[in-house]
């Protein structure tokens, strides 16, 4: 299996506090990798090192290498804007822009100048909505406010918005944690579907969710990578005692 993202000896600091310790991990192309671990274990921080979202925090500092398609994204000449186009992100709380459904999707396409004319833009917006399994629900009200959608629909809109700029990797930070079971199931089905085209990294607190959607699972604790294995192995017979204790609920 080809590695899409290859992280080696990554350390990450918030000021003097070290949030990630010496993480080394390979993320295979077109697979779903889940990050699990207790709150504050660094899994979200780690996710955000993969598209340099942590850059917005002034005191944050990373060392080590993160290679995406063999290129170090922390190299000084990295174009962060281009990186973020390639590595899309979906957040815990759905965060549509205060615009219409159409304009929410079109935003990324517009700012990255990825369309030739109006028809092309419309086609691309439509495709993103289709890919996020939202088209049928919104096709008659593309020009209404995105805030009029339900929570689950808003989250799929955010996924569609991320898909619209044609990324290769999608990072998801607890994408279903605020959703009801049915909306959650739709997101999970979508993740499995998207895997055919994209490499997906998902942070989740819901272990059943990690078990259901991911091919590989990484377990983090106190900023360290405790175990990284095939999901099936993680949930039936993990190598590490700590992993076992965590996934069977022996500590909270």
């Amino acid at each position: 299996m080809e590695s899409k993202i290859s992280i080696s000896n990554l350390n990450f600091y918030y000021g003097k506090e070290q949030a990630l310790h010496d993480i080394t991990l390979e993320i295979p192309e077109r697979q779903v990798v889940a990050f699990i671990g207790p709150s504050g274990c660094g899994k979200s921080t780690f996710l955000r090192t993969l598209n340099r979202m942590n850059d917005t925090i002034p005191i944050a500092k990373a060392d080590g290498t993160v290679l995406i398609d063999g290129k170090d994204i922390y190299a000084p000449n990295t174009d962060v804007v281009a990186l973020r186009r390639k590595v899309g992100m979906v957040f815990q709380k759905s965060n549509p822009f205060p615009k219409s459904i159409f304009e929410n999707i079109a935003y990324g396409i517009r700012i990255n100048r990825m369309y030739e004319n109006k028809a092309d833009l419309e086609q691309k917006v439509g495709k993103a909505l289709h890919d996020a399994a939202l088209w049928d629900e919104v096709k008659d009200r593309l020009n209404t406010s995105a805030f009029g959608l339900s929570g689950g629909q808003q989250q799929r809109l955010c996924i569609a918005r991320a898909l619209a700029v044609q990324p290769e990797v999608i990072l998801m930070d607890e994408p279903a944690s605020a959703l009801d079971p049915i909306a959650t199931q739709k997101i999970e089905e979508l993740i499995v579907e998207l895997k055919k085209q994209y490499t997906i990294v998902i942070v989740t607190h819901n272990m059943q969710q990690a078990a259901r959607v991911s091919d590989r699972t990484a377990f983090f604790m106190l900023g360290k990578l405790v175990e990284y294995n095939a999901t099936q192995k993680m949930f039936t017979n993990p190598d590490e005692r700590l992993t076992e204790d965590y996934i069977t609920g022996r500590f909270g």
Binding site: M207, Q208, A211, F235, T236, N237, P238, T243, E244, I247, T248
Partner: peptide, 9 residues
């Protein structure tokens, strides 16, 4: 209870 790992086995 949706057991996992050793519990499941």
């Amino acid at each position: 209870q949706q057991p996992a790992a050793h519990d499941l086995r």
